[in-house]
Structures are given as structure tokens and as C-alpha cells.
Design a protein around this nucleic acid. Structure first.
Lengths: 84, 84
DNA sequence: TAATCAGTTATCACAAATGATAACTAATAT
DNA sequence: ATATTAGTTATCATTTGTGATAACTGATTA
């Protein structure tokens, strides 16, 4: 898998988890002690985040870090170039 | 949990997974296309790795990325300052 | 219409991860 | 004794993530 797609998956996963909590990027970012613009680029999959950043989000969402890497619930929005 | 401890946990987890494969840091690093010194500092928990780095390791070990964050098998080598 | 809320995007300075090299220790094998 | 293997550590240049600010769009609300 392309590393870029992985970042998008992580972003979609975070958004899904955030939506479950019914909070805005603004509020989640505040819980993480950073700005909403940073949350936006993470959810957009535009960065190769570090563990500490993702851990802040996991803590703010009160979930284990590994949950962020569970993509099984994500609707598979893939293009035709994907193999499976 | 201190972020530093998290990096140590990840390092111990990677070592455990590498040991299961019976390969050296050298060999695993080569599969990841980087040097053994980099693998050493990751396993030592001296860096706040990015997702792309950990994903290279997961791919090299042929495991899902989330496995790296499953610390349940790790023997709890904690000091007395820890709460639980 | 004006104000507020939610999210995106561009830009910047600073800190830190990455990748590489080299020197080192310790253990094992020839 | 020497060579090899495994892992650690220090250092360096380069790249990139982080955190912040500000300007923007679009939707909703007063």
C-alpha cells in the first residue's frame, strides 16, 4: 500500500472516532492542546504523523492507541487501481 | 502515561516481534531499507517514530500495523513510581 | 444581513525524525 | 589470537512534523 493512502486511512479513522463523540475538530484539537488547523491536516491525511501526536488524539478520545489503526469499519473508498 | 514510556513500549514490542522471526536488527533494517543503527534507536525507544517508519517495519515483519501497538504480551517491566 | 461555527489551506519558525557513517563493546566462532 | 556477528552510540546533513497564525469558504443562526 502507498504510504500516502495509509495517512488518508488514519485521517478517516480519526474522523470516524471523533464523529462518534459528536465533537468538532476545534474541540478535539483543544483536548489535544493544539490548534484546529493541525487537526484538519491530520484528518485530511496530509501528514505523516508521529506516535506522540496520534497518542494525544487517542487519549483525548479515550481509546487505546491501536484503535486508530483499526480500519475494518471504514467504508472502502478505493479507486480502480487498487488490487483487492 | 509519559510519552517516553510509550516509545519504550513500542521498541520492546518491535523487538519481540523481530525475535519471533529470528532475525537480527541488521536484517530487519535491510528489509526496511534503512541502516541497523536506525533500528537500534527505534527498539531502544529513543525516538518518536512516524507512521511511515513503523509501517515499513510492519510490512517487513508481515504483520498489520496495529499489531505494533498491542502491548498485551509484553512483560510489564515497570518501576515503583507507576500507579497500576 | 450579520454573526457564528466548522473546516480548509498557506505560510512560517522551530524542533525533531530520518538516513547514513563510523567507532565502539560484547559475544561467539574459526 | 583473530574474525565475525549483533547491537549501541555519537554525529551530521537533510527533510519533515509540529504548533501557531491568519485568511478563506460554506453552512447555519439570530
Amino acid at each position: 500500500m502507498a504510504v500516502d493512502k495509509l495517512h488518508k486511512l488514519i485521517g478517516r479513522r480519526i474522523k470516524m472516532l471523533r464523529d462518534k463523540h459528536n465533537i468538532s475538530q476545534q474541540v478535539l484539537a483543544a483536548k489535544c492542546n493544539f490548534e484546529k488547523s493541525n487537526m484538519s491536516r491530520i484528518e485530511a491525511g496530509n501528514v505523516n504523523s508521529t506516535i506522540s501526536t496520534l497518542n494525544k488524539i487517542a487519549v483525548a478520545l479515550d481509546i487505546p492507541l491501536k484503535e486508530i489503526f483499526d480500519f475494518s469499519d471504514l467504508q472502502k473508498m478505493r479507486d480502480s487501481s487498487d488490487k483487492n
